[in-house]
Design a binder for these strands. Structure first.
Length: 273
DNA sequence: AAACGAATCAACCGCTACTCT
DNA sequence: GAGAGTAGCGGTTGATTCGTT
C-alpha cells in the first residue's frame, strides 16, 4: 500500500515536472498559433495535448487570448480608453472581462493591470480606498472631467478612410493596419465642438451600454448602429488621435497635485458648454 | 557603470459556472 | 439529477524593465 502511494506520488511529480510554466518561447507561440488556426480557439485541453506543447489547456488559452490573438492591440492605453475604463468600472466594478468587451483588442488582464497599477496607485497616494465613496466621487468629479478636458484638448482629428477602414493619424504616413475593420462607431469630425454634460452627471446615468455611457458624457452621439447580435459593439474609432502612447492622466506630478488639491477641498468646479 | 527600488505586465492559481454524458 | 471535464473569471505572483541615485 505504501509502495502504491509512493508510486502515485512519484507519478504525480513526474507529471508536474513535465508541465512547462513560465514565459512562452517563440517556438511554442508558433505551434499554438498553428494549432488554433486548424482546430479553432476552443477545446484548449485538446489543443494542449495534441500540439505536443507541454502546457496546460488553461495556459494555452491565456496565451492565445492575451497575446497571440490577431486582434490584440498593443501599446499604451489611450485617454479615451482610460475614460472608458473609469466609466465602465463605475458601472460594473471589477468585471474586467465585461469591460474588456468594449475595448476592442484590449484584454481583461491588461485592463485589470491598468486599474491596479495606475488607478489604485493614485488612490494610495491620496490615502483612500478605491472602494470608498470619497474616491468614487473624486473619480467622477475630478478625474473623469479631467480626462474629458484632455481628450478635447487634442487638436488634430484623424482622417477616417472608409475604404481602408483604418485611422490615418498623419496622411503622409503609413496607415495603422491594426485599426479595427468596419468600426460601428466613428467619432464625428467636429468632436472639438462637442458639448459635454456636467461632470456631476457622469455617474448619474442609468446607461448600461458603453455607447450610451460614452454618449452621456460626450453629449454628441457617435455614428453607428450599436451592437451586433452577440451584444458585442464595434466600439468607437477613438484610438490615436494624435495621442502618442505616453499621454497618461496618471503619470505627471502636476496632475497629482492638481487632483490632491481637488480631493482635499472637494470642489467641483467643472462645467461644460 | 552599478545597485537598488518602483513600476509594469505576463502568467499562474483557485474558484465558479457551464456543458456534456 | 449527478458527476466529470472544461472554459472563463478575478486575484495574485514573480520576472523583467525602467528610472533614479
Amino acid at each position: 500500500m505504501e509502495d502504491y502511494e509512493r508510486n502515485l506520488n512519484s507519478l504525480a511529480l513526474e507529471e508536474d515536472s513535465d508541465v512547462r510554466k513560465g514565459p512562452w518561447t517563440e517556438e511554442e507561440d508558433a505551434i499554438l498559433v498553428n494549432f488554433v488556426s486548424i482546430h479553432g480557439d476552443s477545446r484548449w485541453n485538446h489543443i494542449a495535448r495534441s500540439s505536443g506543447l507541454k502546457r496546460t489547456g488553461k495556459s494555452c488559452r491565456l496565451r492565445w487570448l492575451n497575446y497571440l490573438r490577431p486582434d490584440v492591440r498593443r501599446g499604451n492605453i489611450t485617454l479615451e480608453e482610460q475614460f472608458m475604463i473609469l466609466k465602465l468600472h463605475s458601472l460594473w466594478g471589477n468585471r474586467w472581462s465585461k469591460i474588456a468587451q468594449y475595448l476592442p483588442g484590449r484584454t481583461d488582464n491588461e485592463i485589470k493591470n491598468y486599474w491596479r497599477t495606475r488607478v489604485q496607485k493614485q488612490a494610495k497616494h491620496l490615502r483612500c480606498d478605491v472602494s470608498s465613496n470619497l474616491f468614487k466621487e473624486t473619480m467622477k468629479n475630478v478625474w473623469m472631467p479631467r480626462l474629458v478636458e484632455r481628450i478635447n484638448a487634442q487638436t488634430s482629428p484623424p482622417t477616417y478612410d472608409p475604404v481602408e477602414s483604418a485611422v490615418i493619424t498623419d496622411p503622409g504616413q503609413s496607415i495603422d493596419k491594426q485599426a479595427p475593420v468596419e468600426p460601428s462607431f466613428v467619432l464625428e469630425p467636429v468632436y472639438q465642438q462637442q458639448q459635454f454634460v456636467p461632470a456631476s452627471d457622469l455617474s448619474a446615468t442609468s446607461s448600461n451600454s458603453p455607447a450610451e455611457a460614452l454618449s452621456d458624457v460626450q453629449g454628441r452621439v457617435v455614428n453607428g448602429s450599436g451592437y451586433d447580435s452577440a451584444g458585442q459593439t464595434g466600439f468607437m474609432e477613438l484610438n490615436d488621435w494624435g495621442c502618442d502612447g505616453g499621454d497618461n492622466l496618471w503619470t505627471d506630478d502636476e496632475s497629482f497635485w492638481f487632483l490632491q488639491d481637488q480631493f482635499c477641498h472637494q470642489t467641483t468646479s467643472y462645467s461644460y458648454n
